[in-house]
Amino acid sequence: MQVTVTVNDTEYTREVEPRLLLIHFLRDELGLTGSHWGCDTSNCGACVVWLDGTPVKSCTVLAVMADGRAVRTVEGLERGGQLDPVQQGFMECHGLQCGFCTPGMMMTARWLLDRNPDPTEAEIREAISGQICRCTGYENIVRSVRWAAGHSAPEATEATEVTA
């Protein structure tokens, strides 16, 4: 089947098997390996990307379901050569160790901050509760998101546009 998906503002058209998962489409077809795969059961969230501005577990979405839609991945967090405050926050607060969960965590964090620019610790924990980190014990992920909340917001992203 032919699909056309806009990923990080670039349009891609590819011939794919109907059963191809979005995560494999991004990683294997487009070479965007920043999003990871970590489980068979939609539990880990290593694969979280945005589909039309909403975080989804891309292991649970077929590539054909993304036809005609917009996807944003960790590779598209940086804007105009500037790191997103979430990316900076993760670096400042040691929000990552092995880095495997990090792209998914950051995509969820940016989405949260776009809706709730000053989230409490409990709100941050709830937002990432569908995602697993095996390294950090979550503490510094929470701090990283708080750091990002305290630093200048980036340009409006498609997530904010959707809310508006």
């Binding site: 990871h36 960790v74 590779e75 990316q87 670096m91 990552l96 880095g99 495997f100 990090t102 950051m106």
Partner: peptide, 20 residues
């Protein structure tokens, strides 16, 4: 701050499954 984070926060890590 960790030197390795610059690549990880950009999705530019290179894990085994990323090798092509």
């Amino acid at each position: 701050r960790r030197k390795e984070d610059a690549r990880f926060v950009r999705g530019r890590g290179s894990y085994v499954d990323d090798i092509v």
